[in-house]
């Protein structure tokens, strides 16, 4: 078990994960620069798999590079581009290079990307992929054929608390945890009441106990970025008043940061939450600033442990009274 795996199991302090930038060529120095930017502040980074249906350097190649550079990769795998054979081959191949954390996603449709003419695959879906990853972790392929060598994998999944139907999202989170997910990264959202309701449901059905639930906080620069997400990114809704708040601010850049900071603080205040996932579209020192302001992550591990102990206690009480 690696350090990230242990932290997911112990949750002795809040977990911080972040989205690693996707790359379009270059060399390992480009990857190393990005690794250096994140390493001191996060526990692991998500290596995306053709995000928003745009082709980039592959998840397998990037996960291996990041692992070799000493940062823990969470290799995302989507169901849109490959069938069950290719997906299993990717997971097993990456694992041979020491990649042991994976996150299963259904994936955005091809129509969300710049090659909408592509054939969509979806041979399997997100919850099935979680289960297949567990099969691989236990030492066989889906067919039942044995793997010669295998290691235990840390499997995660995603869920969108902001998309309807709300009660089905809570049930689907449980389905993924029952299938083998030990952490759950949540979709970006700007409706705190929906997040609260989801987390409460996940407290009631034991998801927060059985998996590390990590809401996503997104660092943006302007109202334009929020408008883009509202109009063009599937499954993300940004209410008008949030966009107006940034648009009318004297300093939209600073206001955008404050918005993310408030979101992170709110998410971390919810009983049962294990940490946060950060998506950074600012590409400045904001990830550092955010973990510093909230005293989170590896750089603040001692203080974090104290703060989090009270959160965990609150969550236990919550589960019992539910």
């Amino acid at each position: 078990m690696g350090a990230f795996d242990e932290l997911v199991a112990s949750r002795e302090r809040p977990i911080v994960t972040a989205e690693f930038p996707s790359m379009d060529g270059g060399d390992l120095d480009t990857v190393a620069e990005a690794v250096d930017r994140f390493q001191p502040y996060v526990d692991a980074v998500n290596i995306t798999d053709n995000p928003a249906a745009h082709a980039h350097a592959s998840n397998v190649s990037m996960a291996i590079a990041v692992k070799q550079l000493g940062l823990e990769p969470i290799m995302q795998v989507v169901c849109r581009d490959k069938n069950r054979l290719a997906i299993q081959a990717d997971v097993v191949g990456a694992q041979m290079h020491g990649v042991t954390s994976f996150c299963a996603l259904t994936g955005d449709d091809v129509t969300a990307g710049d090659e909408p003419e592509a054939r969509r695959v979806f041979d399997i879906d997100g919850p099935q992929l979680v289960s297949i990853m567990r099969t691989l972790s236990d030492g066989t392929y889906l067919s039942g054929r044995s793997l010669k060598h295998h290691r235990e994998l840390l499997i995660g999944a995603v869920e969108n608390p902001f998309a309807p139907p709300a009660h089905v999202r809570v049930r689907r989170a449980r389905m993924k945890v029952d299938s083998g997910a030990r952490f759950l990264q949540l979709q970006i959202g700007y409706e705190p009441e929906k997040l609260e309701a989801f987390v409460e449901g996940c407290g009631d059905n034991g998801v927060c106990r059985d998996a590390a639930v990590l809401p996503t906080v997104i660092l943006t620069k302007s109202a334009g970025a929020l408008r883009f997400m509202e109009s063009s990114v599937p499954g993300i809704h940004v209410p008008g008043d949030v966009i107006d708040r940034i648009a009318s601010a004297a300093d939209p850049l600073e206001e955008s940061y404050q918005l993310a900071r408030e979101q992170a603080a709110h998410a971390l205040s919810l009983p049962g939450i294990a940490g946060i996932h950060i998506t950074d579209f600012r590409h400045d020192d904001s990830v550092h600033r955010l973990v510093h302001d909230l005293r989170l992550g590896p750089a603040f591990s001692t203080e974090g442990a104290t703060t989090h102990a009270s959160t965990t206690r609150a969550s236990t009480t919550h589960t019992q009274t539910a």
Binding site: C79, R80, L105, T106, D108, D109, T111, A112, R120, F122, D125, G126, P127, Q128, V158, E159, N160, F162, A163, P164, P165, V168, R172, M175, Q187, P234, G235, H237
Partner: peptide
């Protein structure tokens, strides 16, 4: 459109419309 056996996916719009075909309600 994604032939999901365990939906709905995360792309459902707030009004329940499908991510891929916004003119239809999400099957799930």
């Amino acid at each position: 459109p994604k032939t999901l056996r365990n939906g709905p996916c995360g792309g459902v719009a707030v009004d329940g419309a499908c991510e891929v075909k916004p003119e239809m309600q999400c099957v799930w």
